[in-house]
Design a protein around this nucleic acid. Structure first.
Lengths: 222, 222
DNA sequence: ACGGAGAGTGTACGCATGTACACCCAAACA
DNA sequence: TGTTTGGGTGTACATGCGTACACTCTCCGT
């Protein structure tokens, strides 16, 4: 065994706070990894996460009071992801032909890119810890509201009262989440099934948008 | 202590198989009760259920191999409940004015009446055990298909190809489940919020049906 | 240069869990 | 009638968990 001083294993001569953030990140990543292996977040234990992170269980407490608190951080990240998604959607040129179809495929790519996060929300949104559930719903609601606001700014469905607009956006979001769940538990490399699913998704959105248009027109006429 | 023979506690002189079914029922009921107290099914343990049922842990094994297997029985019951719902919906007179609104309120009553079952599916549909998840989706899919078949028999959206009709029904079912989740975690005796929620639900279904009509008309014309 | 702070460690405790095995005893059956 | 069957019991064990406490050692401010 080599002498202890600056031994071969402690590699980075990092400032202390950076080191802390690093193991914190390791813990978060450990949780994500375990979820990636099919475990549901709720079923993860503090010890299990610490083990996966290569850290002794007690170290966990230096960063989070319990697993729920770690979960909240993950939820926060989801919030950021969703906000980024909206921001990118906003940048898309308005109303070129086939825009819907393109949005859908962009979104589905986004889901696959952030697979773990979507797995996380879709499985914790209804099951598991009450606190997490509420936090997730909160984020989803925010997302919905921002989408409604975007519709307003673009002058879409201008006749709809805010409540109705939010309801329509709620339906869209619900459909998006359902679609995400569907792609996610599709076995990988099933391009055909995936295309079919995606087409379904497009049709569903069309139906909602048709319906919303009609609602809007009815209000315009009166 | 009284003598053992036909002691005061073993009351019913039931045939053996009936006794078995009885404790089996007690186990199932115990699971339901615990869920009613806010626990999620996934988090229930064999010992916990046995305890609640007033039975020693080992007795559990005489009825189910593990908790998942008990869960499957609960799912089966849900299937029956859903089928009954459809059967009753079929009996409703076709297309009197306000039929949608009436259906919705009947459905929501039904949800509240079978609260535990709906709590169960909405929380296990995405979280928890893989096996249960699949079983539940299976039931939901069946429900969707039967609904599509009913639409066909009533001549609704007759121009829609089967796949599209199923997709529309899928949306309706998705919306129904979302609405169920919403009423269920509404605090009790919030008649106002509930009415609002119910009205939202009606609007959502209208949107879907409008959209479907338009899809159908487009196909009729061509 | 020194002292304190604080991230990470090691050991230990109490508790709940799933499951195995031997057992009891009333009903079912011969 | 005697024998078998099988639902329910009691005891026991290994395992994993969350958490408490005392510890080390390194970085950081003085």
């Amino acid at each position: 065994m080599p002498p202890r001083k600056t031994a071969s294993k402690d590699p980075e001569p990092l400032p202390r706070s950076a080191r802390k953030d690093l193991t914190r990140a390791k813990l978060l990543q450990a949780a994500r990894t375990l979820m990636g292996e099919g475990r549901s977040f709720t079923s993860l234990g503090l010890r299990e996460i610490a083990r996966e992170a290569g850290v002794v269980p007690n170290a966990f407490y230096r960063h989070f009071r319990n697993t729920d608190e770690l979960g909240l951080v993950l939820v926060e990240e989801v919030g950021i992801t969703l906000r980024r998604l909206l921001r990118e959607a906003r940048k898309m040129d308005v109303a070129p032909r086939d825009m819907l179809r393109r949005s859908v495929s962009v979104y589905l790519e986004y889901v696959k890119l952030n697979r773990l996060q979507f797995v996380f929300i879709s499985s914790e949104r209804s099951g598991g810890s009450r606190i997490l559930r509420l936090a997730i719903r909160n984020d989803v609601t925010h997302f919905t509201n921002e989408m409604a606001q975007d519709f307003r700014m673009r002058g879409l469905y201008a006749q709809l009262p805010t409540a109705s607009l939010q309801m329509v956006c709620g339906m869209i979001v619900m459909t998006m989440l359902a679609a995400a769940t569907d792609v996610l538990d599709l076995p990988p490399d099933q391009a055909l099934l995936e295309a079919e699913m995606s087409e379904n998704f497009v049709q569903q959105l069309k139906i909602i948008l048709f319906g919303a248009t009609r609602l809007n027109d009815a209000l315009t006429r009166s």
